[in-house]
Amino acid sequence: MAKKTVRDLNVENKTVLVRVDFNVPMDGDKITDDNRIVAALDTIKYLIDHQAKVVLFSHLGKIKSAEDLDKADRNLKPVADRLSELLGQMVIFVEETRGEKLESAVKDLQKGQVLLVQNTRFEDVKGKKESGNDPELGRYWASLGDLFVNDAFGTAHRAHASNVGIASHLESAVGFLMEKEVKFLGEAVDQPQRPFVAILGGAKVSDKIKVIENLLDRADKILIGGGMAYTFFKAKGFEIGQSICEPDRVELAKEIMTKAGGKLVLPIDNVVAKKFANDAETKVVTSEDIPADYMGMDIGPETVELFKETLAGAKTVVWNGPMGVFEMENFSKGTIGVCEAIAQLEDATTIVGGGDSAAAVSQLGYEDKFTHISTGGGASLTYLEGAVLPGVDSINDK
């Protein structure tokens, strides 16, 4: 890639600041999924093996008020403990995001040691210092080290003090995870092996407009599922009952369909329900025939078969977003069916873009059947839009 990677840095005996994405799901002070910690290990171990002094920065959740500072699921201490177990060595944890205690701990680091700084968004309680990319905060954090490595793809679509802010003051590079994310997404979108099929789900057309518009010029087929399909149905003049819809996007949906020609593939049947609940009364109806008192909750079995047929022979597949209300078991079959169809493709590059679609892959045990599972839902979406990722753009070129 055009950006420096961690391999391009002379890290021996240097204090290397690393932005990682340890924004893991928590239940109180218990980590419920450590995938994001595991994903950062390659870069951290490389720095340890090359005798760097490693200082890690990450956020965890959002900080909206001072009360959030005391919440167990905002404190990175459990992450430090889990990282210690995974590395097989103690990870020093500093409860502060700035000040003498942090400065002293960083100064005392020895080669091969690792230190984790408290949740960077604790600074936001003082007025969006972190998420607003406060210049003074970025300069301060940069003063703690000699080099900077950004390995947090999950926040690459944001300009924060802990990524763009630090990078503007130090020689910088991307870590192995970031390099992998950009490589797979970049090649899939810009240099795809064909046929290239994109699958987009989720609730709103407005969330995916730019992605659809960007991919119309690149993909051979775009399969649409999830709640946003009903806005397209409305644009076609179908009855959609109580289904989710964005009335202000109906005209745009018409324009997209006109521009897409035969590239856009919409559901032909749907699982509909009387209410938004797993135990609701349900039935399967065609897309033109949703009863007035029902709402669409998932793609139907005929649509799953249609999508499978469309995917047959694909050489590049990018999937972002569920096909229905995946968190409810009775409306997860569409998402599961699409996941299984992608997993069974042979000789294809298959990429999942975070969120519920990545969760489906994990729950079904298909991780090893996909070429790449992105750690950053929002960042992968921004990349698919063709937009610049500030967290990558701010890194030094080779």
Rank of each mutant, 00 (worst) to 15 (best):
V6C: 04
K14A: 13
V24P: 09
D27S: 14
D27E: 15
G28D: 04
D29V: 08
I31E: 08
T32Q: 01
D34N: 12
I44C: 00
K62D: 05
D70R: 14
P78E: 05
V79Q: 06
S84H: 02
S84A: 13
M90T: 15
E95L: 04
R98N: 03
G99E: 10
E100V: 14
K107S: 14
Q110K: 15
V114D: 05
R121D: 11
G127F: 01
K128E: 14
E130P: 15
E136W: 04
R139C: 03
D146A: 07
G154D: 09
A156K: 09
H157L: 05
R158I: 11
S162Y: 06
S162W: 09
N163L: 00
N163E: 13
V164Q: 11
H169P: 01
L170R: 13
G175W: 06
K183M: 13
G186Y: 12
V189C: 08
D190P: 00
P195I: 01
F196A: 11
K210W: 08
L216T: 07
K221D: 03
I222F: 05
A229C: 15
Y230I: 00
F232V: 00
K234R: 10
A235G: 12
I240V: 15
G241Y: 03
S243V: 04
S243L: 01
E251A: 12
I256M: 10
T258R: 11
V284R: 04
S287R: 00
S287D: 01
A292F: 11
D293C: 05
Y294I: 10
G296Q: 05
G300A: 09
G300C: 01
A312F: 07
T316W: 03
T316H: 07
P322Q: 02
P322H: 00
G334F: 08
G334M: 02
I336R: 14
C339M: 12
I342F: 03
T349F: 03
G354Q: 08
G355P: 07
A359T: 15
L364I: 02
G365D: 11
S374F: 09
G377Y: 06
A379P: 07
P390A: 02
G391S: 03
G391W: 11
V392S: 12
D393P: 04
